[in-house]
């Protein structure tokens, strides 16, 4: 347990530890309750290729994640992964803003580790509900050049929303790229700011998921098409990371 709702779990999987890219996820079968059919998609928090250790961080939101949080060391877990298309990091990037909100900061740790390895100057902007919801701050500080924290109630860092601080920072300095993960209201503002300040931005999305490998078409998100319309893409396979200018978070999208 790392906050009152968040848990960290580590498991051994050489394949995942060696092959995972930042932003990818694992798809976990909840053990011991066959009435919970679907796997749970959970972001990869960190990997340690030398030991084969994989770390995940997740919020307890229902029965499945509650059962996961009650597992003990030594138990075996059925994990599919690494899955999905993670963050794309091109070699030309020299500076990046990494924006995370709440439990959405989980996939950003591995991202920041890779950015640091590539010598990218990283500013992390992390928003939480309150001091009690904060986790991993020391690790994030180690992996970035600057960490700016906001809390809704002002109990740690600046009081307010992380997107307010993001706008102030963008007024000072434009990074080569932004990466974001967090609740949809936060992503909507990040998307607007990316457009206003003309900064390329990748964001990781969440959707209720089925197979996790692109076969069942349930985890869809609306993506703009060149003809001015949209199509539904698969969050599990085409994402979970998308370019901010292509995803439609605002528009009501009506199927036909």
């Amino acid at each position: 347990m790392i906050t009152s709702h968040m848990y960290k779990m580590a498991f051994l999987s050489e394949g995942i530890a060696l092959n995972a890219n930042p932003g990818q996820f694992v798809h976990i079968k909840v053990p011991g309750d066959n009435s919970l059919l679907l796997r749970r998609p959970i972001s990869i928090y960190d990997v340690h290729p030398q030991t084969g250790m994989v770390e995940i961080v997740y919020q307890v939101v229902g029965k499945g994640t509650r059962i996961l949080s009650g597992m003990n060391a030594g138990q075996v877990i059925d994990v599919l992964g690494p899955l999905g298309k993670g963050f794309t990091i091109s070699r030309e990037i020299k500076s990046a803003f990494v924006v995370g909100g709440g439990c959405g900061i989980a996939p950003l740790k591995l991202l920041m580790r890779r950015l640091k390895e590539m010598g990218v100057v990283v500013t992390a902007l992390l928003g939480f509900r309150s001091r009690e919801a904060v986790y991993g701050l020391e690790e994030f500080e180690m992996l970035s050049d600057r960490v700016l924290v906001t809390t809704d109630d002002g109990s740690l860092g600046r009081k307010g929303l992380v997107t307010q601080v993001l706008e102030e920072e963008l007024q000072q300095l434009l990074p080569d790229i932004m990466f974001a993960c967090g609740p949809t209201p936060m992503l909507k503002v990040v998307q607007r700011l990316a457009k206003e300040y003309s900064v390329p931005c990748q964001m990781s999305l969440e959707e209720r998921m089925g197979c996790g490998i692109g076969g069942c078409l349930v985890c869809s998100c609306a993506v703009r098409t060149p003809d001015g319309g949209f199509e539904y893409k698969r969050v599990c396979k085409d994402g979970p990371v998308f370019w901010s200018q292509e995803v439609m978070l605002d528009e009501a999208t009506i199927g036909c």
């Binding site: 059919l37 959707e207 209720r208 089925g210 349930v218 539904y232």
Partner: peptide
């Protein structure tokens, strides 16, 4: 071609799942 229904398209229920992909 068919776009299908808006998300969410899946819900888990005891020993079952509900879907509404809408023939995408």
């Amino acid at each position: 071609p068919k776009k299908g229904n808006p998300p969410p398209r899946i819900a888990e229920t005891p020993s079952g799942i509900l879907n509404s992909v809408g023939l995408q």
